[in-house]
């Protein structure tokens, strides 16, 4: 998830209503294949859930490999990050 997140960064998440999910949001999800991961939303479907992608596309597992993430697998939306490299409050549209 570089450059937004680096290994060892802290993130704060909160529960987020399905209906409010948008492309660009950064979510923490419990993937069947990859465990608890943090990724950015690229597609939203009210039935299938969300498709995700890492910011560091060259080094991230692909969207197709992750597949659709069910709404029930979404743990929360990242609302704050704290890093030794950068600190920022995520805007509502992210």
């Amino acid at each position: 998830m570089q450059p937004m997140l680096f290994a060892g960064d802290f993130i704060l998440i909160c529960k987020w209503p399905k209906a409010w999910l948008q492309i660009g949001h950064v979510l923490v999800v419990n993937s069947e294949q990859y465990g608890v991961i943090v990724k950015r939303v690229t597609q939203v479907c009210s039935v299938k859930g969300v498709m995700l992608q890492g910011d560091n596309a060259l080094e991230s597992v692909s969207t197709s490999a992750m597949g659709w993430i069910k709404p029930s697998a979404i743990i929360g939306k990242v609302i704050f990050t704290s890093s030794s490299r950068n600190q920022k409050l995520l805007m509502k549209n992210r």
Binding site: L5, V36, I37, S60
Partner: peptide, 9 residues
């Protein structure tokens, strides 16, 4: 912990 799963593919 949450992983970004960024193993070099």
């Amino acid at each position: 912990k949450a992983s970004a799963h960024c193993d070099i593919p």
